[in-house]
Each structure stands twice: as C-alpha cells, then as structure tokens.
Amino acid sequence: MVTFDIKDLSVQFGHIRALKKVSLAIHANEILSIIGPSNSGKTTFLRMLNRLNELHVKYRMEGAIRIGEDGLFRVDVELLRKRVGMVFALPLPLPFSVFDNVAYGVRMHGEKKKKSLDERVQKALQEAYLWEEVKDRLGESAFKLSGGQQQRLCIARTLAVEPEVILFDEPCSGLDPISTAKVEDAMLKLKSRYTIVLVTNNVKQAARVGDRTAFFLGGELIELDATEKMFTAPGDQRTDDYIRGKFG
C-alpha cells in the first residue's frame, strides 16, 4: 500500500502563493480529511498528489514529495495518475453512456477484450455501490443519471483503472444529504483497499469519515491530528474557531 511523504511543499500560481511550506505524511489505508475555508490551499495540495496543478500555465513549486519510495516527479506522470485516482467536486461524467464512462480509462490503458471490459466495469460499479441502480441502464447517456448517481459513476470510473490512492475533492459539494450519505458510505467501505485523501469544506463530513484530519488556513498546515482528538481538543485556537463555525 502506498504512502505519501511531503516535505516543505510551496506552490505558487503567478504571484499568488497557494501553499506555504506544508509538510505531512499520508499513511496507507487511512482516510485523511483536509478541512479549511475556501482559498486555504486544500485543493491545490490535493492536485499536487496527482500532478494536476501542472495544467495551470503559471504554476511553480518547491519542496519534495515522495510516493512510496520514489520521488513523485520521477514516476511517469501517466502511471502516477493511474495509481492516484481523483474524484472532482462536481459530478463530471464524460459525454458517453454509463458503460463507456467506466470503461473509458480501462480502454485507454489498452484493454480491448469485451469480456474483461464487462467484468471490470461491473466490478467498479459494484464497488461504488451503483451497480444495482444502473445495471439495466448501462447504454444510457450518463447525463441522465441523478446527481448522486453521477458522482458515484465518477467514483466507479476512477476505481476501474485500479488505483491505489483516491483523492476526493469536495465530492459532495453539489449533492443533497441522501446522495451525500451514499457517497460517504462508499468511501468508508473503500478504505480497506485504498488510501483516501478527502478535501471537504464540510466539517461534519470530516468528523464522520476521517481517520485523521488536517486543518489548512491561508496555504499553511495549521494542525494535523487524529479526527477525534481534533474535534474534541484541538491544539490551535484557529482550528477551534473554524470547527465551531466562527469563520469559514
């Protein structure tokens, strides 16, 4: 199982400093929640782990990240992203059918056989707790699914390429409470097989699912501790204020 070790990570977009000297470690098979107000650097941090920040034209970084034993930038970027999957803030189905959405990544990685594609798609949909709802609708456009179903479809799409780590970037921000509960359920069950990093601006969500929680503010890591400790006896006044909803 894979781990991350981040040392003194700073990131800049143009003149804007998004992350300032962040150091932390991510353990195998844990759910690490990252909380903090908007513009605190949470998403930037997350997108470092699969090198998606590099799509930004004016991106610059300093510091070191290791994935397992290797430097993050030594791993082939496509291989890295295959190992480190991501689920985005809004449900983002591709303009294909349900089946083709899940099969897309698998196909692109060279799987052509119909039978093994079918198996991989079914397995991924089952893992994302969506199979029962869509097994008769695999040919329909993914846009016809409800918001919560679409988000679980995106999770299935990520699972289908068999990652080791899954990054969730505020995955429930566009969902109603019932859909949110289903997505959270899926996350908890995935924990046994994957390392999960969850960025959320919903403090309660972090409390519900996170093993450990990190609090970011203004691009800095303020505090990182076991979720229970964090929510009962935070070590920093700002963490306390944020958790209690004094700002956000």
Binding site: R83, G85, F88
Partner: peptide, 16 residues
C-alpha cells in the same frame, strides 16, 4: 476544460 482534467486524472495520455 473539466473533460480534459477528468481524462488526464485517469492516467490517460495527452494525445489520447
């Protein structure tokens, strides 16, 4: 742009 991000995040190459 989100379509591109989704695809790239799955480890699919830029040209693909």
């Amino acid at each position: 742009a989100s379509f591109r991000e989704v695809s790239l995040s799955l480890g699919v190459s830029k040209w693909q």
